[in-house]
């Protein structure tokens, strides 16, 4: 039964993730006053890369990197329940907790970083360097918000946090939500915190050396991972979800916001983004934390 559940979650994440990614490209195109690709374009791209005749591998660590990244994404997905009510589609969330999920979010990135390092491509390493330098600043406001939520709801279990909201956490603790949103935009790799990939600027960032099926796997994992992160945010701040429609509506709303945010802003340099994240969202989060747990 649980295997069926997991498989179904994976399927949902895979399809929805690609759909969202296609919508992202389409909507961004509309922002730029053009037609944009069809919604399933990203899916076609990934299948195309799977069907390439060959791809270049720089040794076993390089080969395993995307696999670790995919495993990390699937792990993250499995440890976040789809719905906070009912019995089904909980995944493995009863065996884990929010701290585990916070660490799983970076597990894949570390695997990828190892693979990029093993490839020996300096541009890839440049991207990784930027990513890791930015990471801790990105996580700090998010951590503070999450800690406040855990403290308020009295549990580090995602289901409990989602269920304990009488009104949405986003409205109950708006400052925490705003601070976490800044981090979330960065975690989704959107402008202004998109210095890691930074196409045009650093070749292709960490993905410089990945081709063919490696890239296809990275694209698939990115789709799954995007969905997992959205579900996490929905559970933490938007009152959770008890059905597919609710989940899709809420996550899509959040996604739309992130896209719009990304389409509007330019790119921060690495030190700039660290500086900004350490100053503005962190201060907001600290104030939010104090307000939330004052009593």
């Amino acid at each position: 039964m649980i295997l069926f559940d997991l498989l179904f979650m994976l399927l949902v994440a895979y399809i929805t993730g690609f759909l969202y990614y296609g919508l992202y490209r389409n909507i961004t195109a509309r922002f730029q006053r053009r037609l944009g690709p069809p919604v399933w374009q990203s899916f076609l791209d990934s299948i195309k890369f799977f069907s390439k005749e060959e791809s270049i591998s720089h040794g076993w660590m390089f080969y395993l990197g995307p696999v670790i990244m995919m495993s990390g994404a699937i792990m993250t997905l499995f440890f976040i329940p789809l719905f906070h009510t009912g019995e089904s589609f909980k995944g493995l969330s009863s065996y884990g907790n929010l701290f585990l999920v916070l660490y799983l979010l970076v597990l894949g990135a570390l695997g990828n970083a190892l693979a990029v390092g093993a490839s020996g491509n300096p541009f890839g390493v440049m991207g990784v360097t930027r990513g890791l330098s930015r990471l801790f600043a990105l996580e700090l406001p998010f951590y503070i918000s999450v800690i406040a939520l855990i403290s308020v709801s009295g549990s580090a279990d995602i289901v409990c946090i989602a269920a304990s909201q009488t009104e949405w956490n986003a409205f109950a603790y708006p400052l925490l939500f705003i601070a976490a949103l800044f981090s979330f935009v960065g975690m989704m790799g959107q402008a202004p915190f998109d210095v890691v990939g930074a196409p045009v600027e650093v070749y292709s960032g960490p993905a410089s050396e990945f081709s063919g099926k490696f890239l296809a796997l990275l694209m698939s994992q990115s789709a799954i991972f995007t969905f997992a992160k959205l579900v996490l945010m929905v559970h933490l701040f938007l009152g959770g979800a008890s059905g597919f429609v609710e989940l899709l509506a809420k996550s899509f709303g959040l996604f739309l916001f992130v896209i719009a945010f990304g389409a509007m802003y330019g790119r921060f340099k690495t030190p700039q983004s660290i500086d900004f994240l350490l100053k503005v969202p962190t201060s907001i989060a600290i104030v939010g934390l104090i307000l939330a747990t004052w009593s």
Partner: peptide, 22 residues
């Protein structure tokens, strides 16, 4: 994932020289 990945149609080729990078 590793097993499925290895069974894929696309073959992984190892460059002869470590300097063969993009």
């Amino acid at each position: 994932v590793l097993m499925m990945f290895m069974l894929l149609r696309s073959k992984a080729k190892k460059p002869k020289n470590r300097f063969d990078i993009a």
